[in-house]
């Protein structure tokens, strides 16, 4: 799993590639925590190149959501592939996160 990190108009964008499973979720968590500890108040995680997410990944997304809500920040996930989207639906996470079709929509709506 790889993560690239950019900023667009003050919004932190993490672009993830690969699988977010129990083996890789810790690296994602470390990256997300690092970005938030660095003071980021707006975060988009682009999942368009992520083909697998399990509950370990959802845990990281939830952690980020709670922290950003507490900080009055903005947060969204973008580009979920259909099977990943289904995981979000079944778990009820699609109701508590902002899910965008793609990065551009996320940046437009959160900016």
């Amino acid at each position: 799993m790889e993560i690239s990190d950019t900023q667009v108009n003050g919004i932190h964008v993490l672009d993830v590639t690969g699988r977010i499973d129990s083996g890789t979720a810790k690296s994602l968590e470390d990256k997300v925590v690092g970005v938030l500890d660095g003071g980021a108040k707006a975060l988009v995680i682009d999942l368009s190149k992520v083909e697998f997410v399990s509950s370990a990944g959802l845990r990281v997304f939830l952690l980020a959501a709670k922290r950003l809500k507490a900080a009055g920040g903005k947060y969204g996930l973008a580009g979920l592939q259909p099977p990943v989207r289904e995981v979000f639906e079944v778990s009820g996470f699609s109701k508590i996160f902002s899910l965008f079709t793609d990065r551009a929509e996320a940046l437009d709506r959160l900016g």
């Binding site: 509950s55 959802l58 939830l62 959501a65 079944v90 778990s91 009820g92 996470f93 508590i96």
Partner: peptide, 18 residues
């Protein structure tokens, strides 16, 4: 509880639920 809101949402039990 898959209907819990963000503040109350936890991860425990989600794996087996899936």
């Amino acid at each position: 509880d898959v209907d819990a809101d963000l503040d109350d949402r936890q991860i425990g039990g989600l794996g087996i639920f899936f």
